Computed example of a mutant assay.
Amino acid sequence: MGFGEITELDTEDCWRILSATELGRIAASAGDSIDIFPVNFAVDDHAIVFRTAPGTKLLELAINDRVAFEVDGHDEATAWSVVVKGRAERVERQSDMDAAEELGLRPWIPTLKYRWVRIEPTEVTGRRFARGPEPERF
């Protein structure tokens, strides 16, 4: 197989993968620090929505709303990765919070998470990789 097969995913394939995935990672930064947080999420009208509690994540998003969000996965034959870049904003209007509640998103751990965040994408990219053994080195 040589160098392996890498396929660029089109936007709709990326959204299909995102819609079928529950756990992703958000990368946020404040100053010189970059942090990565695992979050369970839902897709709502080509945006990423997650719940959180007050803390580092919300603080960093208040300082710098530009984020990257990533999901990945694999099966026996392939692996994939989807990256969403965009702007994160707290959901503030009650009607928007009510709509977010309808997504059925619940925390995975027993904590109260009353803050909603929505990532509005500016770029969505993805790749699919054929899995296989490492090629001969020498």
Rank of each mutant, 00 (worst) to 15 (best):
P107L: 11
L105T: 01
A27Q: 13
T125L: 01
M1Q: 12
W116G: 04
E134T: 08
V124H: 00
A79D: 02
H46P: 05
I36Y: 09
I36C: 14
E89K: 05
V82A: 00
G31H: 05
L59E: 15
E8R: 14
S29C: 01
D96P: 13
L18N: 02
T52I: 06
E120D: 10
G73K: 10
G2M: 09
R137A: 05
A28Y: 07
D65Q: 10
R90D: 13
R25D: 13
E101G: 15
H74D: 14
L61K: 08
F129R: 08
A100G: 10
C14A: 13
I26W: 01
G132A: 03
A79P: 04
F69W: 07
D13S: 14
I48T: 04
G2A: 12
A130I: 02
N64W: 00
D98N: 07
I36L: 09
G55C: 08
W116M: 11
P107G: 07
E134K: 11
R128W: 06
E101S: 15
R115E: 14
I6C: 14
L105I: 05
P121C: 11
D44G: 08
I119H: 09
R115N: 14
W80L: 11
I17R: 13
W80Y: 12
A28P: 04
M1S: 10
C14S: 03
T7R: 15
A100L: 10
A30P: 08
V43R: 09
E22F: 04
I36G: 10
R51A: 01
F50T: 04
R51H: 03
D35K: 15
S81G: 10
Y114T: 12
W108N: 13
G132I: 00
E70V: 05
H74N: 15
E134I: 10
F50P: 07
D44L: 06
I36R: 12
D96E: 00
T11E: 13
E22Y: 04
L23P: 11
A130S: 04
T52V: 02
M1N: 10
A79V: 04
C14E: 08
D75M: 01
I26N: 04
N64S: 00
V82K: 02
E120S: 12
I26P: 12
